[in-house]
Design a protein around this nucleic acid. Structure first.
Lengths: 338, 338
DNA sequence: TTGAAAGCGCTACCAA
DNA sequence: TTGGTAGCGCTTTCAA
């Protein structure tokens, strides 16, 4: 009477199947040097004894953990007048998890540590950093420790090409062209003066578009801590101009609502008197009255591309270039006059 | 000329400090049997050689991986007329990650696999399941595999006590009392007929409260796939009654907006003609016009409690009972008449 | 096509 | 208070 209560190991499988541990290992790792019949016996034995390989043993021997880590962008702690779009971040996390699983890996979520150097202690095969700050120290730390990393969104100081980004210039032009096609002649921009590529690219593309179309750019900046309220203030000042804009493109999440507040307050209507578009789609814009046209930043595609890019970097590819994801404009009532 | 380019191991530290590997191990694991002076030397050596322990080696030897997994509730794939509250889920994930890190562990996020049995193959010390379905197969699989698990929210079929839940009955009473205190005499409930404890507890508490206060319960059910639209339909039918309600408590996320749609459409105003409260707080309710009173389900506290509970279960405690978290009512303009 | 044996880095155990 | 050594479960290497 054998009392084998402990969790089965590869040895138990080998005994059960009447082969060596090596053969079992080769079967589960698809080394393709095993006779089909043997293979079948091994697979049967695996289910019979209920074996599941231990990641730690595998990792110790092979030198790879089979785990990617994802650094969350910021704190998510409650309801507030946020810049944060939780849907976007949640989609990012869920899609990264799905993509790592598809590549036979697992995804660790890591909060930003107080001490960035702790990032190098994660003991993973690679790290995905969402929404990097300018000159992000995390990247320096990881590079020094030899841990492969990629970012979702471009760090404006970086040039190494290991990131995934949306086509911000393209999406800006798309929005502005759409507004112009709907009859807008004077399109104002509401954005933030913060060191993220998204804001920089958008502002630059807006300035260029205005120049190309011979119109005067009108920009209002918001405080990223209070996007809605400060956007409303900015738009109020636009509406008091002698020649006010007839369309507003509000970039940071939450600012289209502030713009709408100011427009309604002035007795104007959207889209009748003023067109309105947002730079980042979300429930808040979709369920506004009227629903607001906005740019879908494709978090799912970004996440999948990031995992793919990281896998390439881990595999030793020297440069896979930045990956640029096309955005999609979600056209809603706020830009459909008449 | 030594060419030591490989990642340092505990042996390198031991050599550098002139002690045994055991001593180094004891220092980093705070075994407290090391002389303070030796300890100092070891710590210095660790930074000198830049050693960081490998989780996999540690795990292989100790039998514990130091990793918890979290099963995400549902797919997060884009903007829609959702029941899903991404802020809540994101807060859950972020707080779970923070709490596991505080307990010297790491958090893996796992999508729900096609085959639930894959959950047992995760090779982690424990699993947190957010938002379990009724009689969740995942729990059965994990139990059979001997993997400790806890859930966030109660599976109504379960009795083992390994879960964390909000005080749904208490929060319902709190909302109803608040509405009554604001002058409401006939409070209707908008909820869903879905097998989650949240809905069941709330409905039961509502029925009891109505009985206790001698008022007739009025319930409308929504389709969880289209909460806003179907809530509007339900509320419209309430407003056509000979004796319509003067307050509405709408539970599923998104339904307070549908209720508001129907109320405004009927020419009534909130809170002037009708009070309105929501069962789950979020940006959508906070930024509605008027801002809607709602129950804060405390995702951060839920997450921390879940990690704590799982740690107890992993440590072999036999029963730590269900943990009940008190909710907080966020009172806003929608329930402040006059 | 298969197997035997070494060893990945760490900690538990026992001895000093 | 410290050190030596065995061995966790797996994959790799080399031999058959």
């Amino acid at each position: 009477m054998t009392t084998k209560r402990a969790r089965p190991t590869i040895r138990d499988v080998a005994v059960q199947a009447g082969v060596s541990m090596t053969t079992v290992s080769d079967v589960v790792n698809s080394k393709g040097r095993v006779d089909p019949a043997t293979r079948e016996r091994v697979l049967t034995a695996i289910t019979q004894v209920g074996w599941r390989p231990r990641r730690s043993a595998r990792a110790l021997r092979s030198g790879l953990t089979g785990v990617f880590a994802m650094c969350l962008p910021v704190g998510h702690v409650g309801v507030g007048d946020w810049l944060v779009n939780a849907e976007y971040d949640m989609a990012l996390v869920a899609a990264c998890a799905a993509a790592t699983v598809d590549s036979e890996r697992q995804l660790l979520v890591a909060p930003r540590p107080k001490d960035v150097r702790d990032l190098a202690r994660l003991d993973v095969d690679g790290v995905i950093i969402a929404d990097p700050r300018e000159g992000d120290q995390a990247l320096t730390v990881l590079n020094n420790a030899g841990v492969p990393a990629v970012t979702i969104d471009r760090d404006i100081q970086r040039t190494d090409g290991w990131w995934v980004e949306t086509d911000n210039a393209g999406s800006t032009v798309q929005v502005l062209d759409h507004l112009a096609a709907q009859g807008a002649r004077r399109i104002a921009l509401v954005t933030a003066d913060a060191p993220w590529a998204w804001f920089e690219d958008t502002s630059a593309a807006y300035a260029r578009w205005c120049e190309d179309h011979g119109v005067k750019p009108q920009v209002r900046l918001v405080d990223v801590e209070r996007p809605r309220a400060t956007a409303a203030t900015g738009v109020r000042s636009l509406l008091r101009l002698r020649n006010p804009p007839d369309a507003i493109f509000a970039i940071p999440y939450g600012t289209p609502l502030g713009a709408l507040d100011a427009i309604v307050e002035s007795g104007r209507s959207v889209p009748g008197d003023m067109l309105l578009a947002g730079g980042m789609d979300g429930q808040l814009l979709q369920s506004a009255s009227p629903p607001i046209t906005a740019v879908d930043l494709r978090p799912v595609e970004m996440a999948r591309a990031a995992v793919d890019l990281l896998a390439r970097r881990v595999n030793g590819e020297l440069a896979a270039g930045p990956v640029v994801i096309d955005t999609t404009l979600r056209i809603r009532e706020s830009t459909r006059p008449g």
